[in-house]
Design a protein around this nucleic acid. Structure first.
Lengths: 130, 130
DNA sequence: TGTAGTAGATTACATACGTAATCAATCTGG
DNA sequence: CCAGATTGATTACGTATGTAATCTACTACA
């Protein structure tokens, strides 16, 4: 039940996140399928998506299994680990690692709807009675 | 009392954030003073800090007033605007813009101490009775 | 069976970034 | 008054990134 070391998270760039999101959502997928899914969100050339896939393989953020002449891609790093990692570096970069500062900012900047606030209170309630 | 358009936030890189943080903390400062403050946190060559200052001027994230042969630097963009901007792009990049997802993650990933949770509940309480 | 389309691999290329070093002008201590 | 220190400006340079195009091998239809 211990957290896997996960060696060292590969650094995933902005554009690459898009691709990872797709594959965390559903995998394995062929390149063509990823291109298709991406098309809903971004206006990238299929070439560009291929490049991303290639780079993510290099970074070992993805793995593949060959199926005929094409690859089926799937995440090699968990979404939650990446979220953790990204949140941590964002927090330390922008909010000097102060989580409360971030939360205060979110609330303050009106990022939270009333619904969000209710949800959050619920989350906290649950958390409190861990 | 309307929020200034702030044209378009300059994109501030990781390393540049360090410099901005210093100047938001205290300004105006000479390059030497910034170097000094930075030294507490990072182990950068003074040259590197100068480069950052130069780039931030170009990006118009900083302004300066000349004082003798040196510049006194000061932020040209507000910290809160940059926080807003950075939070927004982080949220959309990593959490698909879903604030609640981020919050759930923060709480869940144990980023919040009990104190944090108390503080947060307080913040929410206050917010609720706006 | 040959030719066009497709897949992955390799190459391209401008800009950003991290990390400085060098240069020209200026200030300052002796 | 001059030499060294200091300042901002310019240049450097390898890697990352966004955004593709080209090359090569293979597959699938006519």
């Amino acid at each position: 039940m211990s957290k896997k070391p996960q060696e060292s998270m590969p650094k995933i760039s902005d554009a690459e996140w898009q691709v990872m999101q797709v594959l965390w959502e559903e995998s394995p997928l062929s390149a063509a399928q990823v291109v298709e899914r991406i098309a809903n969100e971004q206006d990238w050339s299929p070439r560009t998506v291929k490049t991303m896939l290639g780079r993510l393989l290099q970074k070992e953020a993805l793995t593949f299994t060959q199926e005929g002449n094409r690859y089926l891609y799937r995440p090699a790093v968990s979404r939650s680990a990446c979220l953790r990692d990204a949140s941590k570096s964002f927090l330390s970069r922008v909010f000097s690692g102060d989580t409360r500062l971030l939360l205060a900012h979110l609330v303050d900047a009106g990022k939270l709807s009333n619904d969000d606030i209710q949800t959050l209170k619920q989350i906290l309630q649950d958390k409190e009675s861990e």
